[in-house]
């Protein structure tokens, strides 16, 4: 459980939770993942990653309001915790620093 590094899939899921805010529950995260990356993912896979990220302390969650579309069942809405934000930041900084050390691609980054 002490593993605090982020995998690629985990990082994207974490970011998506941040983007989706109040709508960040397993189904919506999975849908958004498909839209943003064009890759297929099952709800179960997304859910298990969300669960794992919560156990690592990067996410907190609470049960939301029940809605009619879900047969009156509540949903679990995830939000990024402080440690989660730190982990994202650390990961971004690592990448930027790596990018900077890679001269051939400096121009490329400025263009986009």
């Amino acid at each position: 459980m002490k593993e605090t590094r982020l995998g690629e899939f985990e990082e994207i899921i974490l970011l998506l939770v941040g983007i989706l805010e109040q709508e960040a529950y397993a189904l919506k995260v999975a849908d958004e993942f498909e839209i943003q990356t064009g890759r297929k993912v099952s709800i179960g896979a997304t859910h298990s990653t969300l669960d794992r990220l919560s156990k690592k302390g990067f996410l907190t969650s609470k049960m939301g309001k029940p809605t009619a579309q879900r047969g009156g069942r509540r949903k679990r809405v995830y939000t990024i915790s402080a440690t989660g934000q730190e982990a994202l930041k650390a990961s971004k900084e690592l990448r930027t620093s790596l990018w900077k050390q890679f001269p051939a691609f400096i121009n490329l980054t400025f263009q986009t």
């Binding site: 709800i43 859910h47 049960m63 579309q69 879900r70 047969g71 509540r74």
Partner: peptide, 30 residues
């Protein structure tokens, strides 16, 4: 609760978007 909620939501979305058969298949898949 949350899982069956999610799956059901997905199911109805699928029924509207595609067919009920496809939706059922996807439900099994999920």
């Amino acid at each position: 609760e949350e899982i069956s909620g999610d799956l059901e939501e997905r199911f109805y979305a699928d029924v509207r978007a595609t067919s009920s058969f496809r939706a059922a298949c996807n439900y099994w898949y999920q």
